[in-house]
């Protein structure tokens, strides 16, 4: 199986972007990550991750949705590409395969 070069933080970010659907931009992603993981990534760390993911081809972006709150500036929205989705699938598959090969602890059934 091919290694997909998806780091742990990157995988999380990618998953969150997927789960947010149309409303995935830096601040909402930040909030969502904070809610799920209890960590509060800095905006710089996030943009750094977006940049890397985009370069790897897992993300696409478009600009829009300016608000007053932002001083009239656009947001950059992110979408998972098919390739990104496949990377998530691969990663999940790899993990679950490996997980299922773990010896049972004997509490179930």
């Amino acid at each position: 199986m091919k290694y997909t070069q998806l780091g742990e933080f990157e995988e999380l970010v990618l998953l969150v972007i997927g789960s947010l659907g149309d409303n995935a931009y830096s601040i909402s992603i930040k909030e969502e990550l904070k809610r799920h993981t209890k960590r509060n990534p800095s905006i710089g760390a996030l943009h750094s991750a977006f940049n890397r993911l985009e370069k790897k081809g897992f993300l696409e972006s478009y600009e829009g949705g300016a608000t007053n709150k932002r001083g009239g500036r656009s947001k950059r929205f992110y979408l998972i590409t098919t390739y990104g989705r496949k990377a998530l699938d691969d990663s999940f598959e790899l993990r679950s395969t490996l997980y299922h090969s773990l010896p049972q602890l004997g509490l179930s059934e």
Partner: peptide, 9 residues
Amino acid sequence: DIFRGDVYE
């Protein structure tokens, strides 16, 4: 522009 928007928000 994007960054500035983010930090303002």
